[in-house]
């Protein structure tokens, strides 16, 4: 009875899967290439030696997590305004990717901090506010995991996503007043030119990875939502459910 419908939507999903895999392969080859390029052209840093190369992932991850959180905020706002499921799924996909990038930033920062500062962790402003940001968005993802009804989940997580975004500058300000060891950001004028170029191309490569992750999770979530709707239809004897 409902089997025909299921069969129908599997074919485009398969096609999308192979496109996704091709894009993914390309994205990761690009990242591998920019990493290989930067590692080979940049000379060892005077103080940090080859450790400096962690920068090519740590800094791009930190920049791109902000892009991901910006997408969460915009998509959440749009969801509350227009009420379309797409925007909710986009916000969720961006929050997952953003939390991943924040985790990566923190982990790499710790690995970098141990040999250069001599400590894994310090209660410095930027470190602490990044950790808080991580917990705010992990909270967002946990909320999503604990709520089953799709409409409710969408409304609630949009509100939580917006309030979280609103808190980012306040958290940053408060922690900065509280503590300040992380070096001030380097700017192109303080950075050796070949570092600047390497950093920029890696930032772009990581951004493409982030956009790929968001796109991929977004599509997966759309498929999951479609599958749920289909199960509901079948369970109701193909007469269409409350959402049909």
């Amino acid at each position: 009875m409902g089997v025909g419908t299921v069969e129908l939507s599997v074919a485009p999903a398969r096609a999308r899967r192979s496109t996704g895999m091709l894009i993914g392969l390309g994205v990761f080859l690009l990242l591998a290439a920019t990493q290989a390029y930067s590692i080979s052209i940049s000379t060892p840093d005077r103080d940090m030696g080859h450790l400096q190369k962690i920068m090519y992932v740590h800094v791009p991850a930190a920049w791109n997590m902000m892009i991901a959180y910006f997408i969460v905020a915009i998509a959440s706002l749009r969801y509350l305004w227009k009420g379309r499921e797409k925007d909710d799924l986009l916000a969720a996909a961006a929050a997952e990717t953003g939390a991943l990038m924040t985790g990566l930033t923190l982990a790499l920062g710790m690995i970098w901090g141990k040999p250069t500062w001599g400590i894994w962790w310090t209660w410095d402003a930027r470190l602490t506010s990044t950790a808080v940001l991580f917990f705010i968005y992990v909270g967002y993802l946990i909320l999503r995991a604990f709520v089953d009804d799709p409409d409710r989940r969408a409304q609630w997580s949009a509100a939580v996503g917006l309030l979280g975004a609103l808190n980012v500058p306040i958290v940053y300000m408060s922690v900065r007043w509280w503590r300040t060891l992380h070096q001030v950001q380097s700017s192109p004028s303080t950075l050796d030119p070949n570092y600047t170029l390497s950093l920029r191309i890696n930032a772009i490569a990581v951004m493409i990875v982030v956009l790929f992750f968001i796109r991929h999770r977004y599509q997966t979530m759309q498929l999951e939502a479609a599958a749920d709707a289909m199960h509901e239809r079948i369970a109701l004897g193909d007469r269409g459910g409350i959402n049909a």
Binding site: F135, G139, L143, F146, V160, S174
Partner: peptide
């Protein structure tokens, strides 16, 4: 208003609330 109507409400509220309250 959200956590009380979700599963695992006792866990969810502090997880959502405390990171926001750090300032």
């Amino acid at each position: 208003a959200m956590s009380s109507r979700s599963r695992a409400r006792e866990v969810l509220l502090p997880l959502l609330l405390f990171p926001m309250l750090i300032p």
